[in-house]
C-alpha cells in the first residue's frame, strides 16, 4: 500500500504530498484530466493494469483504487 501511494503521488507529480488510504481521489490537489492520464499511465506501467477513465473516476478513495489494482494486476 505504501509503495502504491508513493507511485500515485509521483504519478500525479505532487511529490511531498501526504496521502492516506481513505483520501478521496477527487479531493487530491490537481486531480484533473491530466492527473487522470498520468495515473492511468502509472497503473499500466507499474502494475500492468489498464483502467478506463470512467473506472478510475468511479473509484471513490485511494483504498478503493488500490483494491481494484490488486485484484487485476498480472
Amino acid at each position: 500500500m505504501e509503495t502504491f501511494i508513493n507511485n500515485l503521488v509521483e504519478g500525479i507529480n505532487s511529490q511531498g504530498l501526504i496521502i492516506q488510504s481513505n483520501h478521496k481521489l477527487v479531493e487530491l490537489p490537481n486531480w484533473d484530466s491530466l492527473a487522470i492520464l498520468t495515473t492511468l499511465s502509472m497503473l499500466d506501467m507499474e502494475y500492468g493494469v489498464t483502467l478506463s477513465g470512467t473506472e478510475l473516476q468511479n473509484c471513490g478513495t485511494v483504498a478503493e483504487l488500490y483494491g481494484i489494482v490488486e485484484q487485476r494486476k498480472k
Binding site: 484530466s33 492520464l37 499500466d44 489498464t50 478506463s52 477513465g53
Partner: peptide, 24 residues
Amino acid sequence: GEGIERSRCHLHMDGAEIFNFSLK
C-alpha cells in the same frame, strides 16, 4: 464542466480512452 465548453459541431475527444487505445 472543468473548463470545457463544446457544441455538437465541435471536436470531441475522450483523452483517457484515446491514451489507453494508443498504448493498446
